[in-house]
Design a protein around this nucleic acid. Structure first.
Lengths: 230, 230
DNA sequence: TCAAAAGTGTTTGTTGTACACCCATGT
DNA sequence: ACATGGGTGTACAACAAACACTTTTGA
């Protein structure tokens, strides 16, 4: 037991959330890729791949994301590690799952290339491995986190109106929020700061634009965020 | 990329919390073990070890816990996975960290055997690897979770008085709580149910005993609890 | 009978929700 | 002018904190 010890293949997979318009409003979607190998050949699965020999886990998540879907996420966070011995029929695999957010323009850029399909979170089922469970857990965590952490801003650009921010929260939570109370709550929290700009071109009164304020050592450690979007 | 892919050694480590009396009140402690091998030979570290070839990750956490400390936890939960390429000087190691709770009688049973030392959480520093960070994160998570999940009961026996439950919360949070408001909050939450028994032998009015009510599919998935204590 | 924890009641402040209302703009 | 989302004000309910008070036991 000096070092070495039993070895396993280590893979990363990522649950990627983005907002896409659907019927009337924005809805959370995630990309799935069609597997071209056994096990689960032909089935849809979360994007992922093996880690590199000298590669950090989060870096591996970003790299495999670009390779399989072309997506560059604005936010990446570790979710859970699966290691049931019988998880894969072909050998011992330990799978580290990441959760990521990408902004809508980035998501639209890779529409239907690559064997990638965007599915609304409500319809994501029948995936390979135990990925159905994984998606459900990622969604649960995202919904919990949007309540106390600054995650929604990673689905928006540099500046945004409070109405846009509210739409993001509504899409994540899957229910409508009172505009007045939402505004007060988020402004009072100090999570955003007003700019002098206003969003013009809309059909109504131009809303003021806000910017996300960088959180001090707020929540838990070990979260990683990426640089600017593209 | 069929299967296989790059391989790594996979280890589990566990942050184990228990309550031990210290000066006046109960305080959170955790066990550390002295390393007898490189890297970090002689330093104190979290208990852990390598996973078995056909062993689930949580099972490996329990097994290594028994082997290194003799402890059988009442609650085990996955915390985080570390995989920085330069984490260990001796080769690629992916380390899955678990967080566990053990009841006080179980903790006292293994006092100072095994090369194990109990340290108050406030004094846990200078550990091997990045274990200082790990402990800080585990404590942050435990404190957050005691607010909305039924974790404190895993540090108590089958039945307990509300005063005892309050002491546990106080020790975890590191501050005193109002007995009256604590009682109302926990009773109203439905997290406990009253029994007909009372705790005799105390110096004052005998308090009613309560039992933890099993939570329905409450919090997030993937949490694992053990059977009865010993 | 006294000290101290168990347990109940009340008061006050804070926070969240519902909703009425004004403001500013494109059509 | 008017429809609509932006933005403000307000009333009410739910909840948490602080603390006075009664109850019940061992010593």
């Amino acid at each position: 037991m000096t070092h070495g010890g039993p070895v396993a293949s280590v893979a990363v997979s990522t649950v990627i959330f983005t907002l896409l318009p659907r019927s009337d409003a924005l809805h959370l979607h995630l990309p799935v890729v069609r597997r071209t190998r056994d096990p689960f050949d032909g089935a849809w699965a979360l994007p992922g791949g093996w880690i590199g020999a000298d590669e950090d886990l989060a870096d591996a998540a970003r790299r495999t994301l670009v390779e399989t879907t072309g997506l560059r996420p604005s936010y990446v966070e570790q979710l859970y590690t699966f290691g049931r011995a019988d998880r894969s029929p072909t050998g011992r695999v330990v799978s580290v799952i990441y959760s990521a957010l990408v902004r809508s323009p980035e998501a639209a850029r890779v529409a239907e290339v690559h064997n990638v399909r965007w599915v609304p979170v409500a319809e994501a089922s029948g995936l390979a491995f135990d990925h159905d469970e994984v998606v459900a857990y990622a969604l649960w965590r995202l919904r919990a986190k949007v309540g106390y952490a600054q995650v929604a801003v990673h689905l928006l650009g540099e500046t945004f109106s409070l109405g846009q921010l509210r739409e993001v929260h509504e899409a994540v939570l899957g229910r409508e929020l009172d505009p007045a109370n939402f505004r007060r709550r988020v402004v009072a929290s100090g999570a955003v700061e007003a700019t002098d700009e206003h969003l013009t071109g809309g059909r109504h009164r131009p809303p003021r634009l806000y910017r996300a304020v960088v959180p001090e050592g707020a929540a838990g450690p070990f979260e990683t965020t990426a640089g600017p979007a593209a």
